[in-house]
Design a protein around this nucleic acid. Structure first.
Lengths: 144, 144
DNA sequence: CTGTATCCACAGTGATACTG
DNA sequence: CAGTATCACTGTGGATACAG
C-alpha cells in the first residue's frame, strides 16, 4: 500500500530526525539565543515556506513555474519572496540556466533537507490529530 | 551540567515524538486532508502559540498574568486571542476560579503536550543550525 | 485580576501590468 | 519563462479605555 509520508520523507531524513531527538541538545540557552531561535522558527514556520519545503523534499529539483503550479493559491510575488528567503537562509539552491527562455531550478540543500526532517514530526502530528482538533473545535463552538 | 531542553521537554514527550517518527503514518493523503493539515500547521505555528506552548510545557500550570509577564512583547489582546485559539483547538485547558480577584489557570492538555513534543525536533534543529543559517545569510547579503 | 471594546497604524498580501 | 514594480486593500496587532 502506498504511503505518502514515507515517499515524502527519505529514510535518511527520518533517521536524522530521530538522531536529533536522541542526542543531547546544546547546553546553553540564554534569552538572546532563545529570541534568535524564536525568530528563526517564526520565519521558517510560515505557510508558504513549509509548503515549498515539503514539495521540494518530495520532488527533488523543480523550476520556478513548476513550484508555482503545484502550490495552490500562492501568488508569483509570494513565491519569489519565499524562495529568496529560503535561499538566503541556505535552505535551497537557485540555479539559473543561461538559456532562452530562462530556466531556474530550485533544490533543497542538505540544510533544507534536515529542516524538512525536523518538521516531519509536526506533519505526522497534524495528520494524526486533525480529527481530534476538529472535534475539540466543534465542542468549543457548541457551548457559548 | 544543566540542560534546558531536557528540562523543557519531558522524557515521555520525547519518547512520544520518537514514536511518531518510528511508526507508520496514515496511508491516506488526499488534497483536502493536505489542505486541512496545512491550515492547522499555519495556525499552530504562529509566533505566540509556539511561545505559549513552550512556556506551559516548561512551567506546567500558569495564570493569565504570569504568562503575559514571561512572554516578552506580547500584548494583552494577543495573549487572550492566542489562549482562546489554543483552548478551542484542545491544546490547553482554561480553569476559572470563582474568587475575587478572579484567577484563571492555564495548562496544556495531553494533546498540547504531544504537539509540544512534535515541535521538539524543530526546536533542536533551530538551536543546532542557528549559526549555519546566520552564516548563510551573511554570505547571501555580501554578494549583491 | 482577567478580560472586552474601540480605534488606528502599518506590514503583509494579492492583483495587475510590465521587463529582460 | 522568471521575475520586478506598483498599488490598493485587508487583517494583524498595539495602545488605550473600560467592565465584571
Amino acid at each position: 500500500m502506498a504511503n505518502p509520508l514515507q515517499t515524502r520523507f527519505h529514510a535518511d531524513d527520518i533517521a536524522q530526525a530521530e538522531h536529533y531527538l536522541a542526542t543531547d541538545p546544546p547546553a546553553e540557552l540564554d534569552p538572546r539565543v532563545e529570541r534568535l531561535v524564536n525568530d528563526l522558527i517564526g520565519r521558517i514556520a510560515d505557510k508558504w515556506t513549509l509548503l515549498v519545503l515539503e514539495l521540494l523534499e518530495e520532488k527533488g529539483v523543480l523550476r520556478f513555474s513548476a513550484i508555482g503550479r503545484q502550490i495552490d493559491g500562492i501568488s508569483q510575488k509570494m513565491l519569489t519572496q519565499t524562495l529568496r528567503q529560503m535561499e538566503r537562509d541556505g535552505l535551497l539552491t537557485r540555479t539559473v540556466h543561461p538559456v532562452v527562455p530562462p530556466r531556474v531550478d530550485y533544490a533543497l540543500t542538505p540544510l533544507g533537507n534536515s529542516l524538512s526532517a525536523a518538521f516531519c514530526g509536526v506533519w505526522v502530528w497534524a495528520e494524526r490529530h486533525l480529527d481530534i482538533v476538529e472535534a475539540a473545535r466543534a465542542t468549543f463552538d457548541a457551548r457559548d
